[in-house]
């Protein structure tokens, strides 16, 4: 069952990647990247049980933190651009 779950997670990551390539606008791509990141956390956790080495869970914790910060960072860039454009228009 563990390997089945890992295959499903990989499938979902593939879907996220497809959406990141085709996504009509930048926000779809960021959403896909966010989905990809959270599924990576699950994948690392599942792999740590498949290989029987609980040390991998630390990496999963760190990855969850990094993923969140990266999404907020990218969105912050788009917000700053919008603010600049508005400031330039006035």
């Amino acid at each position: 069952m563990l390997s089945f779950t890992i295959i499903v997670i990989l499938l979902v990551m593939l879907v996220a990647l497809a959406r990141a390539f085709t996504g009509p606008n930048v926000f779809d791509r960021v959403l896909a990247a966010n989905l990809f990141g959270t599924k990576t956390v699950l994948l690392i956790a599942a792999i740590s049980y498949l290989l029987g080495s609980p040390d991998y869970l630390d990496i999963a914790v760190i990855y969850a933190l990094i993923n969140y910060i990266s999404v907020i960072g990218v969105l912050r860039v788009t917000e700053i651009r919008r603010e600049r454009r508005q400031a330039g228009a006035e």
């Binding site: 956390v41 969850a64 907020i72």
Partner: peptide
């Protein structure tokens, strides 16, 4: 449990920011 808590705290914030 830590991973679960963190995902549950961060995912709504991330989707709101998006």
């Amino acid at each position: 449990v830590l991973i679960l808590l963190f995902v549950l705290f961060s995912s709504p914030t991330a989707s709101h920011a998006l």
